[in-house]
């Protein structure tokens, strides 16, 4: 007993640190509730028996989940968004990864200008990016549609790909590549068998980021899309007259798919570290 009390800090300190610990945890729980409340609302209202306007709760139904394409334009816009985001992901990941390699692995003149050109699009508000690109398209009479949105999305995704891949690449030990070349791998083999596999997680993370940025973008899309409708644009346009519950179904389904994918990979990582 006496040893027990001797090792413990005095009561006052213990009370204070218990309070400190739990106050912080309590605060974190409230912050998480704030972050996730609208997500929960979106999910709950996907079961609303609402008909066309999904504003007030009118009773539980599974109809929306059974027929997610039931409302006009919902699935069409989702397909548009997915096709667009896939194309944007491929293009911006290639362009951004090349830049990241140049920045980390080579010494060249014009590095400062390059860094500035990468940084500026991230520091520019979306209205400015959207309106300036529209000004260009209007001036040279480019018809708005899928391709103008594609161009715009690739433009703002490149910078995010560059910084993500660059971070991974910079943390790699270049001696690994040298070792491969000491063991008679030529430069191309060393790249393919050593560098690329090690950078792959960074490229994958960049691709995921580009996909989600493109899929969820509204402001730049709204300026440059003309008649072409993406999912966020569809939701925004229908917000005035009421969003069909099917939009909530699709958003909730995507939420759970994405969450499951990320959680599975995180838990696998955790296991691997413990093993």
């Amino acid at each position: 007993m006496s040893t027990d009390t001797a090792t413990k800090p005095p009561v006052g300190v213990r009370v204070r640190s218990w309070f400190g610990d739990n106050a912080l945890k309590f605060y974190a729980v409230i912050a998480f509730a704030y972050l996730l409340l609208p997500v929960a609302y979106t999910f709950v209202f996907s079961f609303n028996d609402a008909g066309r306007t999904n504003i007030v709760w009118q009773g539980f139904t599974l109809d929306n989940w059974k027929n997610p394409c039931g409302a006009p334009q919902v699935c069409e816009s989702v397909v548009n968004s997915i096709v667009l985001a896939l194309g944007v992901t491929i293009m911006s990941t290639i362009l951004g990864t090349l830049i990241a390699f140049a920045l980390v692995r080579y010494q060249f003149r014009g590095r400062g200008t390059t860094n500035l050109t990468i940084f500026l699009p991230m520091a520019t508000p979306e209205v400015v990016l959207g309106s300036s690109l529209l000004a260009l398209f209007l001036n040279i009479f480019v018809p708005l549609g899928f391709w103008t949105v594609f161009i715009a999305h690739v433009m703002f995704c490149i910078s995010f790909v560059v910084v993500t891949v660059k971070a991974r690449l910079a943390s790699l030990d270049p001696r690994l590549e040298q070792a491969a070349m000491d063991l008679y791998a030529n430069e191309r083999e060393a790249f393919r068998r050593i560098t690329l596999p090690l950078v792959a997680p960074g490229i994958a993370a960049a691709a995921l980021l580009a996909f989600s940025l493109s899929f969820d973008d509204f402001i730049i899309t709204n300026f440059n899309s003309g008649q072409f409708t993406t999912f966020p644009k569809f939701v925004y346009v229908s917000a005035t007259r009421g969003i069909p519950a099917q939009a909530n179904v699709i958003a909730s389904a995507m939420f759970f798919i994405a969450l499951a994918l990320v959680l599975v990979s995180q838990i696998r990582n955790m296991r691997r570290k413990e093993a």
Partner: peptide, 21 residues
């Protein structure tokens, strides 16, 4: 992941959800 999770739902839908809340 929970901090990023809201991103998985379109931000316009989340803003509309606030309107209801």
């Amino acid at each position: 992941v929970l901090v990023i999770a809201p991103f998985f739902v379109s931000f316009i839908l989340r803003t509309v959800a606030w309107r209801q809340i």
